[in-house]
Simulated assay, not measured.
Amino acid sequence: MVMPRKGYVKDSLQILMVKLIGVKQLESQQLLDADIGQNETYYLHLLSELQASDLDPLTYAFLERKLAYLTSISLEKELQQSRWINLGLLFMVVALSFVIVKTRNKRQELTVSVLSKQERTVRGLILQGKSNKEIANELFISLSTVKTHITNIYSKLNVANREELLQKSTGTST
């Protein structure tokens, strides 16, 4: 049995008109904004049905404008919330970076402070670019004692050579 298509389309348009009248009633009672806020998906679907129908666009233009306005307000709120979240995350990154740098500097200070007074002196002369022989002459100690101090410094600061010691002391890397 084939149903007449015209009757179905006419009924569909009448149902849409009834829905539109209901929406206009909500608007006249100033309840439409709240209802859209609670049932946004329904209203967006209704609008797409109205746009697909043969109804004159002027009959539902108010609903289009209302949905566009309320959607833009909703999007603005979400954008503002996103900005605050991004600002909070940026603050956290800056704070975390500050903590990392501070911790690294303290760790470097602690490793240097584990050196004996003589080892700190030898380290300082190494950082000035002095050779082992120059260090020995300046501190009035033997060359083998300088080498022993340097071995202890390298071990305590976890470096393998003068270049690493310089990089670790100045905080640069190559």
Results as ranks from 00 to 15, higher is better:
residue 3 M to K: 05
residue 5 R to P: 00
residue 5 R to M: 03
residue 12 S to E: 06
residue 17 M to T: 01
residue 19 K to N: 15
residue 20 L to W: 03
residue 24 K to L: 15
residue 24 K to D: 15
residue 26 L to C: 07
residue 27 E to V: 07
residue 28 S to G: 15
residue 28 S to F: 11
residue 30 Q to N: 10
residue 31 L to V: 03
residue 36 I to H: 00
residue 37 G to Q: 14
residue 39 N to S: 07
residue 42 Y to R: 01
residue 44 L to N: 11
residue 46 L to S: 05
residue 47 L to T: 02
residue 47 L to F: 07
residue 51 Q to N: 07
residue 51 Q to Y: 02
residue 54 D to E: 11
residue 54 D to H: 01
residue 56 D to F: 03
residue 57 P to M: 12
residue 60 Y to C: 05
residue 60 Y to A: 05
residue 64 E to P: 03
residue 64 E to T: 09
residue 65 R to E: 10
residue 66 K to V: 02
residue 67 L to M: 08
residue 67 L to H: 05
residue 68 A to M: 06
residue 70 L to G: 04
residue 72 S to Q: 05
residue 72 S to Y: 14
residue 72 S to P: 01
residue 73 I to L: 12
residue 75 L to D: 07
residue 75 L to K: 02
residue 76 E to H: 05
residue 78 E to G: 04
residue 79 L to F: 07
residue 80 Q to K: 09
residue 80 Q to R: 06
residue 81 Q to H: 04
residue 83 R to K: 15
residue 83 R to H: 04
residue 85 I to V: 10
residue 86 N to K: 15
residue 86 N to I: 05
residue 89 L to V: 14
residue 91 F to G: 10
residue 92 M to G: 09
residue 92 M to C: 13
residue 93 V to E: 09
residue 94 V to K: 15
residue 95 A to Y: 04
residue 96 L to D: 15
residue 98 F to H: 13
residue 99 V to H: 14
residue 100 I to M: 08
residue 102 K to D: 12
residue 102 K to M: 06
residue 104 R to C: 06
residue 105 N to Y: 04
residue 106 K to V: 03
residue 112 V to M: 06
residue 113 S to L: 04
residue 113 S to R: 02
residue 115 L to F: 10
residue 116 S to C: 12
residue 117 K to T: 01
residue 119 E to M: 14
residue 121 T to L: 09
residue 123 R to Y: 02
residue 123 R to N: 00
residue 125 L to G: 00
residue 126 I to Y: 14
residue 127 L to N: 09
residue 128 Q to C: 03
residue 128 Q to W: 07
residue 128 Q to F: 05
residue 129 G to N: 11
residue 133 K to P: 11
residue 135 I to Y: 10
residue 138 E to H: 13
residue 139 L to I: 12
residue 140 F to G: 12
residue 140 F to P: 03
residue 141 I to T: 08
residue 142 S to L: 06
residue 144 S to M: 12
residue 145 T to V: 08
residue 146 V to Y: 09
residue 146 V to K: 13
residue 150 I to G: 12
residue 151 T to Y: 13
residue 153 I to V: 11
residue 154 Y to I: 13
residue 156 K to Q: 11
residue 157 L to M: 10
residue 160 A to N: 13
residue 161 N to K: 13
residue 162 R to K: 14
residue 162 R to Q: 15
residue 163 E to L: 10
residue 163 E to W: 07
residue 164 E to H: 08
residue 166 L to N: 02
residue 166 L to F: 12
residue 170 T to P: 01
residue 171 G to F: 05
residue 172 T to P: 01
residue 172 T to Y: 11
residue 174 T to E: 10
residue 174 T to N: 10
